[in-house]
Write a protein that binds this DNA or RNA. Structure first.
Length: 481
RNA sequence: GCCUCCAUAGUCUAGCGGUUAGGACGCUGCCCUCUCACGGCAGAAUCAGGGGUUCGAGUCCCCUUGGAGGUGCCA
């Protein structure tokens, strides 16, 4: 019987939820949950200097918001609690000591200066196993002296091929000589990521490790650790990076690299998740728009790409636009309201009607602000706007038509949307001209713009009778100047 | 420098020895239309280069080139 899959998402609390990390979490969640497995959250905060206040909560909140519900984690506990590495401190040193006793690790007292002297002309440095030769007595003596120390992994310096199988990249082989005797326990007593990671994954029964490809070449070192403890190695799934462009990783410094940044720019949760699941994975059936559930069931390892993917906000916008258009109207109004409050329409006009006009015309919620700004752009405008070849209109035509329209509208009592539409069209028919002859000049007269979200009759309704008539009169004056 | 990995249009990708190299974003054109947008249709655009292997290579191998990652008391 296959054992159940246990994956973990193990971010370090560095301040924000990077899109790449979110994708790793998504894949891990889908992989486990799509196969009846478990998904665990563990905070890797062994570097106390880099920890950013509040990050852990941000991670937890984002996971909740995106529906990546973990079975065990810092806030909900679980059978292997605690799920914050800094709180698990006690065990690591003991495990390291076990390795020392076995000869798989050793105490090192080298200071920074000596370490730096080992740096070669390329800036690379490989520890020379200097302290490996220290006698047991000397180590005891220096330890008793309270000298500062670290514990290093003892990796054979003979040429040995270390091979493991990665589910995405296939077999990876690294020569022992290429691996440095990495530090397991830092001088502050904390384990390094490299060590804590292995210990905790084993202790927490993690049998499937999904993470960024930056660990591809250091994984053999972790495997040596698993072997030294005689623990079973997990299944490895390394993921390619998400890039800003061909040569730069997506990062905080260059634009919207965080989930929160994207939300702030008016992207919807569903669209963000849908887009990033496709960045590096393909269902291979040409389907792109998928619900969370569909992604969960479709996700598989075969579809994971080996090469880095460039984050394309333009395509995200397209997908986001799709999601916005499909939003039930009431829901869209809810999403749009805060943005309308931030726009020049704040507190003016019928929000629901505005929403009706804009829902199909935006890709992000942020677009609302610009799209809706047309209401305030009315003023002196270029009369050439009345010239439209296709509609066969010109300033002259407008000058002739507009007063008639004004009279007609002034007499119009029913200002409901439907009535407005019907009676304006009936009026046009009565004049015996084509729709464009009236509608184009009217729309320009109402907006002073080349294009608007909504046509003439829609603008009439949006602005209301008083404002509409005011604008038309203004435009007639402008034409007569 | 050394090590590991990657390489199909501008971008995300399908392809797993025989295809008119498929889809999507973006772009261009047309249609629809009270403008814009939506929608519909059509189009331009890709196997990094060079060697092999094979009857046959985008697919397998090697080299070159380009790129990413690693080479931390960061994760």
């Amino acid at each position: 019987m296959d054992k159940i899959i246990r994956t973990r998402f193990a971010p370090s609390p560095t301040g924000y939820m990077h899109i790449g990390n979110l994708r790793t979490a998504l894949y891990s969640y889908f992989y486990a949950k799509g196969r009846g497995g478990q998904f665990i959250l563990r905070i890797e905060d062994t570097d106390q200097n880099r920890e950013v206040e509040g990050s852990s909560q941000l991670i937890i909140d984002t996971l909740h918001e995106t529906g990546l519900i973990y079975d065990e984690g810092p806030d909900i506990g679980g059978p292997y609690a605690p799920y914050v590495q800094s709180q698990r401190k006690t065990g690591y040193l003991e495990y390291a000591k076990q390795l020392v006793a076995q000869g798989d690790a050793y105490y090192c007292f080298c200071d920074k200066e000596r370490l730096e002297s080992l740096t070669d002309e390329n800036g690379a440095r490989k520890y020379d196993k200097h302290c490996l030769s220290l006698s047991l007595e000397e180590v005891q003596r220096r330890l008793a002296n309270g000298e500062s120390y670290v514990i290093r992994q003892n990796i054979p310096d003979t040429h040995e091929a270390n091979t493991y199988h990665d589910m995405v990249f296939g077999d990876i082989t690294v020569d022992s000589c290429e691996m440095e005797d990495q530090i397991l326990i830092k001088s502050d007593g904390m384990p390094t990521y490299n060590f804590a990671n292995v210990i905790d994954d084993h202790l927490m029964n993690i049998n499937c490790v999904m993470r960024g490809a930056e660990y591809l070449s250091s994984t053999p070192k972790y495997n040596l650790l698993y072997d030294a403890f005689k623990w079973e190695r997990p299944v490895y799934i390394h993921l390619p990076s998400i890039m800003r462009d061909a040569t730069h990783k997506l990062s905080k410094r260059n634009g919207a690299a965080g989930y929160g940044d994207l939300k702030a720019k008016g992207f919807l949760r569903e669209a963000i998740l849908n887009y990033i699941v496709l960045l590096g994975w393909s269902p291979k059936n040409d389907v792109e728009k998928m619900s969370f559930d569909e992604m969960l069931h479709a996700f598989n390892l075969e579809g994971i790409s080996k090469s880095n993917a460039i984050f394309d906000e333009v395509k995200l916008r397209w997908l986001n636009g799709l999601y916005i258009k499909e939003l039930p109207f009431e829901e869209f109004v809810e999403y749009a309201t805060p943005w309308l409050d931030k726009s020049c329409c704040r507190g003016r006009f019928d929000y629901a009607y505005l929403c009706k006009l804009i829902q199909g015309r935006i890709d992000t919620l942020e677009d609302i602000i610009e799209l809706v700004s047309f209401v305030d752009k009315f003023g002196d405008y270029d009369l050439e706007l009345y010239t439209n070849k296709k509609q066969k209109t010109s300033p002259e035509v407008a000058k002739e038509i507009l007063p008639k329209v004004l009279d007609f509208l002034t007499a119009q009592t029913d200002w409901s949307e439907q009535q407005l539409h019907d009676s304006v069209l009936a009026f046009v028919q009565q004049l015996g001209v084509k729709n464009g002859i009236v509608l184009w000049p009217l729309r320009v007269a109402l907006s002073g713009l080349m294009s608007t979200p909504g046509g003439a009759t829609e603008l009439l309704y949006l602005f209301g009778k008083e404002e509409s008539l005011r604008r038309i009169r203004y435009s007639i004056d402008l034409l007569n100047k």
